[in-house]
């Protein structure tokens, strides 16, 4: 393994993040606060409790997931698309680097940034509601795995994208709806039966359910299913990336 190269990529990517630290830090704090004002105060005052948990606390895992997933995707996709756009990928391709090392560098940095945002949101949320975490280890594991798997997906999007519009397309048209309809702000048991069944085809449901279980011991689907879902998704992304680099698709002619 060319560790020096991995760290060079990682450090450079993190440097970009720290250059805009205020922006990276403030925007999740503001958006989380807004969600609490709108969902927590305005709607929460009517819902009160979901399965014994105050509505304000209930939405925290979903809120964290929402930001972590979008951040992981946008950081990773931008991280690799930007060099592609500038034409600086020549350097990656002509360096003594394996594809694994490139992925570890870029995805590692994107996942770290997403994790940072996730922690910031949790801290912000703890100012608004009384948060209890029943299974802290599982919570950390879910958070880290989500950061990594969606950063992998973002990396694929960044390689695939031919322009900035395409870069936004998948997150906007697929990921955001899946997250919003994945039980971020409600329990799927609150839905009519037919929609409960349909919702089960949404992979994000399993993530949010598992994550919420780590907090409150409440889950829409069995925790084993959640673990299986995230492991399967990570495996799928890894396979896609392996194929991309084996064939040089959209990166090496």
């Amino acid at each position: 393994m060319n560790w020096a190269a991995i760290s060079a990529i990682y450090v450079t990517e993190m440097h970009r993040f720290f250059r805009t630290l205020a922006q990276s830090f403030i925007s999740p704090v503001i958006s989380t606060s807004l969600y609490f004002v709108v969902f927590g105060a305005a709607i929460g005052s009517r819902i009160q409790e979901v399965e014994g948990v105050s509505y304000g606390a209930f939405i925290v895992p979903g809120l964290v997931m929402l930001s972590v997933i979008t951040q992981a995707i946008s950081n990773a996709s931008f991280g690799i698309y930007f060099p592609k756009f500038l034409g600086t990928t020549y350097e990656l391709l002509s360096a003594p680097l394996s594809f694994l090392e490139i992925v570890v560098g870029y995805v590692g940095a994107a996942a770290t940034k997403a994790l940072f945002i996730g922690v910031v949101i949790l801290l912000t949320a703890s100012l608004f509601v009384d948060l209890q975490i029943q299974h802290p280890l599982a919570m950390v594991a879910f958070l880290v795995l989500t950061c990594i798997s969606f950063a992998l997906m973002g990396f694929i999007i960044g390689i695939w994208a031919g322009n900035f519009e395409q870069l936004q397309l998948v997150p906007l048209l697929i990921i955001t709806p899946l997250i919003f309809l994945g039980g971020s702000f409600y329990s799927i048991s609150m839905l009519p039966p037919i929609w409960q069944t349909i919702t089960l085809f949404n992979p994000v449901v399993y993530l949010i359910s598992g994550f919420r279980w780590a907090f409150f011991g409440l889950a829409d689907v069995p925790i084993g299913m959640s673990l299986l879902a995230i492991a399967g998704f990570t495996g799928l992304c890894l396979a896609a990336i392996w194929w991309i680099f084996r064939t040089g698709w959209r990166i090496r002619s």
Partner: peptide, 13 residues
């Protein structure tokens, strides 16, 4: 920074 980055990519300390 960009010059250091290039050196790192080639695995040099």
């Amino acid at each position: 920074d960009t010059v250091r980055f290039s050196r790192g990519l080639f695995g040099k300390p």
